[in-house]
């Protein structure tokens, strides 16, 4: 039984990804021995948290067969929003809560487009991302909005010192949210109903699950988490810019899909998504560590995605043939 479980793990998608990550880390360390230094790791943790936070809401949406391509610009909007209301002298905890509600409202609007007007989610949210990008420019007038509130800054910039190593707060938020939402997805009735509507809408409906209700909650959730992400990122930078975070949702989606979350819905989970996201972030970080010219970094980012997709194909093929062999043995 244990042997079987082990062999299953070795054939799993996660294993392939982890293997790639290990090889990558070794390669980057050979290129720059500071790659696994305390400083770089804590920088890496700060970096992964933006895409990571967005991924939490996004993965839930993806599993339900939806997507929010405006998540990054929603975070950007929320960042400017929180900077603006802080500027009016509002205490930061209140401002944070209002910002999250603001994000939820943006999510609600997406849900309206998809559930009430019946638009295709990915096209409607591309449209919304363009709207938010423009609004961000309008509101900020094209320049960064800086923050004077002293209490807000640590929310994104504080790190817990552990000897030489600093554990950044945003990374802790990310891990906590991954764990909480991972548990929700696996162990709650609501979480399971997300898989239900993503796997077979009609079956879900006939089983009495309200597709619109679930997907509306998920859009709101994604918007709210995106707003939190925007607030944290603003705190980290101590200012909010009209270009911030936009586009990061693509990293979140790419990581999730690499980690086994299907774009069609109904399968995958946050664990795999985390591994996928880790791979992408570690790779980006490594490219900087070995000081590859910036322009080549863009090429390499696309390249790693393509390589991962190809590796996934061969992994899938070996899994299928192994399953067939198993079935043949059983028969």
């Amino acid at each position: 039984m244990t042997a079987q479980k082990t062999s299953k793990f070795f054939r799993s998608k996660s294993f392939a990804l982890i293997a790639i990550i290990i090889v990558m880390i070794i390669a980057f360390t050979l290129g720059n021995k500071n790659y696994i230094s305390a400083g770089n790791i804590s920088g890496f943790m700060t970096n992964i948290s933006t895409a990571g936070l967005l991924a939490v809401g996004m993965v839930c949406l993806l599993i339900s067969g939806n997507v929010d391509l405006a998540a990054g610009t929603e975070a950007c909007m929320a960042g400017i929003f929180v900077a603006t209301i802080l500027g009016s002298g509002m205490p930061w905890p209140v401002a944070l809560i209002i910002t999250i509600l603001f994000g939820a409202a943006m999510g609600l609007f997406n849900a309206f487009l998809v559930n009430v007007l019946g638009f295709m989610g990915f096209i409607a949210t591309i449209g919304m991302s363009s709207v938010y990008k423009g609004l961000a420019l309008v509101v900020s007038n094209g320049i960064n909005v800086s923050i004077s509130n002293q209490g807000f800054y640590p929310l994104g910039a504080y790190s817990i010192q552990m000897g030489k190593f600093a554990l950044p707060l945003p990374f802790i938020y990310t891990v906590v949210l991954f764990v909480i939402y991972g548990l929700i997805l696996k162990y709650t009735k609501f979480g399971r109903s997300i898989y239900l509507i993503g796997g077979n809408r009609n079956a879900a409906r006939l089983a009495g699950v309200s597709i619109k209700k679930v997907s509306t909650i998920l859009y709101i959730n994604c918007g709210a988490i995106a707003a939190f992400c925007g607030a944290v990122s603003t705190a980290k930078m101590n200012s909010a810019g009209p270009q911030a975070i936009s586009g990061t949702e693509m990293d979140s989606i790419a990581g999730a899909v690499l980690g086994g979350v299907s774009f069609m819905g109904g399968s995958g989970g946050l664990g795999g998504a985390f591994i996928g996201l880790f791979l992408i972030s570690a790779f980006k970080n490594g490219l900087t560590a070995i000081s590859l010219p910036t322009y080549w970094q863009t090429v390499a980012q696309g390249g790693i995605l393509l390589i991962a997709l190809v590796v996934d194909y061969f992994g899938e093929r070996s899994r299928v043939s192994a399953l067939k062999a198993e079935a043949a043995q059983a028969a």
């Binding site: 162990y187 009735k189 399971r192 239900l196 796997g199 079956a203 699950v209």
Partner: peptide, 25 residues
């Protein structure tokens, strides 16, 4: 058939009405 191929037989049988209390499966 109104089934979700990726979910287990048990979960399909109880789809939309999983056993458990206060929202936990």
């Amino acid at each position: 058939r109104q089934l979700i191929p990726g979910l287990s037989v048990a979960e399909n049988i109880f789809a939309g009405d999983l056993p458990g209390s206060s929202g936990i499966v």
